[in-house]
């Protein structure tokens, strides 16, 4: 089995299997292109990722490996245990998403860059979850948004959205 080495922007290398790497669509397409042009190769493939930092890459790879393991379990287990398994997956994902907002930004950027659809879904969900149930002032404070509206505009928008604000 061919190994793939992902190199973070500070030079740290992470080795993952092809199976786990196939969740990253960017890496998977790169791999396909290489195989189409050169044929089978046994050397490890080094992929430099200039805009992903080490700790974020670690976290993303943890997600890939874990999803891989869950997928294998899902196909192996009988139908009766599926509900169980989805419950476990959800619990794991919930724990995985217990990160600070800052980390979440980096994670979502990395997921976008590496094109991991499931992780992207999970991250955007988590972000939406953090916006949900907050007032505009709280959202502005939490996410560092600048109030760029003039007071009249803001009042108008407020009035048009009054149905949702209370």
């Amino acid at each position: 089995m061919r190994n793939i080495v992902l190199r973070a922007n500070d030079g740290a290398d992470h080795v993952i299997s092809v199976a786990a790497a196939s969740l990253c669509k960017t890496v998977a397409s790169l791999l396909q292109d290489l195989e189409a042009s050169k044929g089978e190769d046994t050397d490890p493939l080094i992929v430099p990722l200039p805009n992903v930092c080490n700790c974020t890459l670690q976290k993303v790879l943890g997600f890939c490996e874990q999803q891989r393991a869950f997928d294998e379990l899902c196909t192996a287990s009988p139908a009766a245990q599926q509900a169980d398994l989805t419950r476990q997956i959800q619990a794991w994902q919930m724990e995985y998403m217990q990160v600070s907002t800052d980390e979440l930004y980096h994670l979502v950027m990395a997921a976008h860059y590496l094109n991991v659809p499931r992780l992207l879904d999970l991250c955007t969900d988590a972000m939406a979850e953090r916006i949900r149930g907050k007032s505009p002032a709280q959202v502005r404070e939490c996410f560092g948004l600048k109030p760029s509206l003039s007071p009249e505009e803001e009042e108008e928008i407020r009035r048009s959205n009054l149905w949702a604000l209370n």
Binding site: L120, T124, A128, R132, S135, P136, V139, E154, L165
Partner: peptide, 20 residues
Amino acid sequence: LVLRNLPAQGLAVIACTCKE
């Protein structure tokens, strides 16, 4: 993508925060 995952109330709230 984030906005797509928001419910209606969240969308209305975030519309009030800034121009963009």
